[in-house]
């Protein structure tokens, strides 16, 4: 807990959720939260509840779908998967992100 945690950038959580679903296939909310924390090596400070807000937003936009299924330990859980429109969005937003990150990186190296 002694590590300095970074606050998550506004709007980037949606992108991370999309990418996680794209990479891992259907996941439930808890799994997704764990996954993102693991990948970030606990650098990101994540109120786990915000994942669900993000999921609701993405569902509303039609970029992901949800279905009730059974979890690893046989409990009822909701599994999310990315849709075709979500994939398109992911591609566009990834390109956009990389472009901006590149620009910011170059600027910071001045």
């Amino acid at each position: 807990m002694g590590k300095t945690k970074s606050e998550i950038l506004q709007g980037t959580l949606d992108l991370m959720v999309l990418k996680t679903l794209h990479a891992m296939g259907p996941l439930h909310g808890y799994g997704m939260a764990r996954r993102i924390e693991q990948i970030s090596e606990e650098v990101l400070e994540l109120n786990q509840g915000t994942i669900y807000a993000s999921l609701v937003r993405l569902l509303q936009k039609g970029w992901i779908t949800a279905a009730w299924g059974t979890s690893e330990n046989n409990r009822k859980a909701r599994f999310y998967s990315i849709t075709a429109r979500g994939l398109r969005q992911l591609r566009e937003q990834t390109e956009n992100w990389e472009r901006i990150a590149g620009v910011i990186g170059r600027v910071l190296q001045l």
């Binding site: 808890y30 669900y52 409990r75 909701r78």
Partner: peptide, 13 residues
């Protein structure tokens, strides 16, 4: 549904 998901999440955690 949302409540159930939250409950599930907490249990797992």
């Amino acid at each position: 549904e949302l409540e159930e998901e939250i409950a599930f999440h907490r249990e797992q955690q």
